[in-house]
Design a protein around this nucleic acid. Structure first.
Lengths: 367, 367
DNA sequence: CTGAAAGCGCTTACAG
DNA sequence: CTGAAAGCGCTTACAG
């Protein structure tokens, strides 16, 4: 019975009014003293008194109430396509690190892939008054980007960009990445090189395919004759299916440059299923250098991307937007690098072949 | 110049006042009509009119202002030790899914491991008025748990529990998991079995070691004679170091039951470094069945834990706390299962040994 | 340099 | 069933 008197569920926390009363000043003065930005409006001794009182009472500003008044929440929403994918957790780690350093916190929304759902999610985040949004979910032409632009919410894209650059983005140089793959394979002596691409409505899938085509063209191959297969998703499963189709239709290819590590691992299964061997019969290159691909069998040659750095850069771009810093709006394009492991080797000259796990890094013959 | 007139940065969004004006009712009536819980206080036709107006104006409740008034934010804070670890992203995925279904959103805070930092993070989350907290960071005796209890903030632990059960937790049955490991190895014929444990100040490290000891005791081994080494962190690096020490000090052991997959992968490196072979010379069992351990060489026999389910259960527990549902406060302990792959085989009888990747699942001889 | 007041957008006892 | 008012905790022009 006695307990019912306590109306508030949480223990009544100390408010600015309490601090003001303890310091014998008006709440407005207390507020000014506590905020470093306005502290100089207050006499030194008064400010110190207020600060001391605040400390001893254990006062903490109510960020919620402050947000309502100022219109800024110090909250940033992040939309990821699949939080379970280590790629996106790495990016998220970078975003978090960078944002925390600026006093911001992140609300992470995991999109199931459904498009309408995404708009609802964004609306829910806006209702929480997020100051801005970082989208790791963008398609090449993205309705959510449209929506945010209309709603006038600052956004930054990460990992994936739009085809029309309507919003700043932090991405990897996807075309360069594929050039590294192709140059490496050509260097090893491969000529019949295929590409296993990702979804073409996502910039990574599209640009990596384009990068493959241009790199091959650079080496004198006709763009019309290239062997390309596209997976419908960035999964081992989709890679297995598309990889098998590729190998069955074109049994003569000696190497596959894939658009993604998971696709590459799917290709491993397909290669095994068809009784072929990597890298003896067929070389495979991945893309991303995701965790543990150095330990699979054979260890995967792949294109390393600084996912964490990408997250950090995306956060910086958003800070620029929020502060409306002067200077041209721009993208950040990170340079990837090739990591040579055991899934690539010289093509088999007829029957015999030599495993070369310690192949020297590729130098671009097209450069 | 004309632009300066617009004081608010974001496009002035439609407020409850606007809806009320459009529907020719008082804001309080509009509020009641829009909230399903209070709608029955309003005449049908009025409610419909308000709802129609709200729709056509594109009204969205300002969750922030509502929170300030009601004291509930529909926001849950989640503390993870390392968002980059797939384990925790899986848990996070489950938490998100379950919480979203109840209208809650999550703020994820990635702790760097520093202890004081954690308290600050929690304070920042409380300042954002989170309704509750889910901690994936707990040590067996955790200062953050203390702090939350003092601050009267509802908390739930996930994956790791405290030794004194001060807060509800959703965890795996860690001791049972180690029993599955040990029984499997004994089944295969191993007798000289060592344990590579994790940090002992974390429940998973502690309980898995205890589980190892009890399982071995069940098989008639003297608890005082067991071979146990402890890694200082759940990393490949720490596993490599501790694993090497173990193998050097006890060259006669034929199997290692580890407390964690990453430790097991570290052991792989140590085994290779010392010129031994897994599973020929030495069998290794992991714990967690994290993504891709089915593709490493040799594929890892490990204890599978439903991390996603664990996250879902943790969210459910928190919902119980927030709603103060009747019924005893309780923990959820999920049963793990053994996944048999190629890193375990019969011990080598002298020199010769047979690789048995398709070893039959262990049946408990101690049961 | 300080105080008094208004207001961010909402919800909810309190009257009628 | 509806309206008028208070108030969640803060910040910031406005006076003095």
């Amino acid at each position: 019975m006695a307990k019912d008197i306590q109306a508030r569920p949480a223990s009544r926390s100390v408010t600015l009014k309490d601090v003001a009363a303890a310091a014998h000043v008006h709440v407005s003065t207390a507020s000014r003293a506590l905020n470093p930005a306005t502290r100089n409006m207050v006499a030194h001794d008064v400010a110190e008194r207020v600060i001391t009182c605040a400390h001893s009472l254990g006062y903490r500003v109510d960020a919620l109430a402050a947000s309502l008044r100022t219109g800024r929440s110090m909250l940033v929403g992040v939309l990821v396509p699949d939080i379970t994918n280590p790629l996106f957790s790495l990016i998220l780690g970078g975003i978090n690190e960078s944002l925390h350093a600026h006093g911001y916190y992140t609300i992470v929304a995991d999109v199931g892939g459904e498009q309408q759902n995404q708009i609802d999610l964004v609306e829910a985040l806006i209702a929480r008054r997020v100051d801005g949004l970082i989208l790791a979910t963008a398609h090449r032409n993205d309705p959510v980007v449209c929506h945010c632009l209309e709603r006038n919410v600052p956004i930054v894209l990460v990992n994936r960009s739009e085809s029309t650059q309507r919003a700043p983005a932090a991405v990897s140089d996807d075309m360069l990445g594929m050039k590294l793959s192709v140059d490496h394979l050509v260097d090893l002596g491969h000529r019949r090189i295929a590409h296993l691409g990702g979804p073409q409505n996502i910039s990574t899938g599209y640009l990596r395919r384009l990068g493959f085509e241009m790199a091959m063209e650079n080496h004198g191959f006709d763009r019309a004759d290239l062997t390309i297969e596209t997976a419908h998703a960035y999964t081992r499963q989709a890679g297995h299916v598309a990889g098998r189709a590729l190998l069955q239709r074109h049994p003569d290819i000696t190497a596959i440059a894939t658009a993604n590590d998971l696709l590459a691992l799917g290709v491993y299964s397909a290669v095994e299923e068809l009784g072929r061997h990597c890298p003896g019969n067929i070389s495979v290159v991945g893309h991303n250098d995701m965790p543990l691909v150095d330990m699979v069998q054979p260890s995967l040659t792949t294109v390393r991307i600084g996912h964490r750095e990408m997250g950090i850069e995306a956060a910086k771009l958003l800070m620029r937007e929020l502060r409306q810093e002067p200077g041209a709006r721009h993208n950040v394009v990170l340079a990837p690098s090739l990591v040579t492991r055991s899934s690539t080797a010289k093509p088999a000259p007829g029957e015999s072949w030599v495993l070369r796990p310690d192949a020297t890094p590729a130098t671009s013959p097209a450069g």
